[in-house]
Simulated scan of single mutants.
Amino acid sequence: MRNTERRAAAHRTAAVVIGALFLMGCGSNDDAQEDNEPPAAPQKMDAEPVEEHTEATDDVPIAELADATWVEETAAEHAIPQRALAAYAGAALRIAETRPECNLGWNTLAGIGSVETSHASIDDSGLNALGVAEPAIIGPLLDGSEGVMEVEDTDAGEYDDDEQWDRAVGPMQFLPETWETHAVDGNLDGEMDPQQIDDAVLTAGVYLCETAEDLTDDDEWVSAVTTYNQSLEYARDVAGIAESYAGDAADQ
């Protein structure tokens, strides 16, 4: 599931871009024809909230919403960095309050984070005490080379340090233009930073729930995830990882 070569390949092809601008996987046509079946929606896994945060939480940073003992134990069980899991769980808890009908599980967000950047640990990056990826995670140039789209610069290099071409950025790999139009402040610091795990994960969750009405429905889950990245192979990878988190929990 966490094979280093697979994660690197996913990153090299910029395997997560929210919105209509996306990168296609680089598999062969034979590989694509081998399995065109969409995955089933993974079982929705709920996070355990902090007891005092079971009511309105719009004034609480999402990393503080999940019970700390639950985060520690669940992170160890699944080999997910605690800081990343706090963001996945907190985003799911926030969305459960604001859009309960969406039925977003933390494990779907974690599946995306795993495929995208191995929970912000790809290329020797990591999350600092503020939840910011260091060094910054910046994907490959979207210059029309083999396997990637051509996306001319939209942010004057503000997010991706490139004034000619766009590059996907942060733990959840957003295009700069998409970040500008969808960004959410997950840690309530007054800024929206694609390299900050709470901002990035909550934005991803909100986007998924804007795309689908109920993520426990197979077709809607696939539709949402393939809007995030238009590739069934990508959806299958995310579903497999998300379901493994659910399966591990069910075995306890």
Rank of each mutant, 00 (worst) to 15 (best):
L65P: 13
A250L: 14
T69I: 06
L175T: 15
P49N: 03
V151G: 07
D199K: 10
V148H: 15
Q173M: 07
D198L: 05
I80P: 09
T108Y: 05
T108E: 07
G157K: 01
T57V: 15
C102P: 10
A239T: 06
G126L: 10
I80E: 11
R2I: 08
A224M: 11
H53G: 03
L109K: 11
A40D: 15
L109E: 15
E150K: 10
L104T: 05
A66M: 02
L23V: 04
L208N: 14
A47H: 08
L188N: 10
S125I: 08
I241A: 06
Q33I: 08
A235E: 02
H119F: 15
T154R: 03
D199I: 11
E146P: 13
I137K: 10
S145G: 13
D219C: 00
A56I: 05
H53L: 09
P81D: 04
V201F: 07
A110V: 12
K44H: 02
P176L: 05
G170S: 11
E152V: 00
A133N: 11
G186D: 10
T227R: 12
T108S: 12
D162Y: 05
T226P: 14
V17L: 03
I80S: 09
G170W: 13
P81M: 00
T54H: 01
E213F: 07
R236G: 04
E210K: 12
N128V: 08
L109S: 06
Q173K: 02
D155V: 05
G25D: 14
A204Q: 10
V238W: 07
G111F: 13
Q164C: 01
G247K: 01
H119I: 06
A156K: 02
P100Y: 10
P176G: 06
T216A: 15
T74E: 14
E213P: 06
T74I: 02
E37T: 14
A47F: 09
L93K: 00
T216P: 09
S118M: 09
R236S: 12
R99V: 04
A68Q: 11
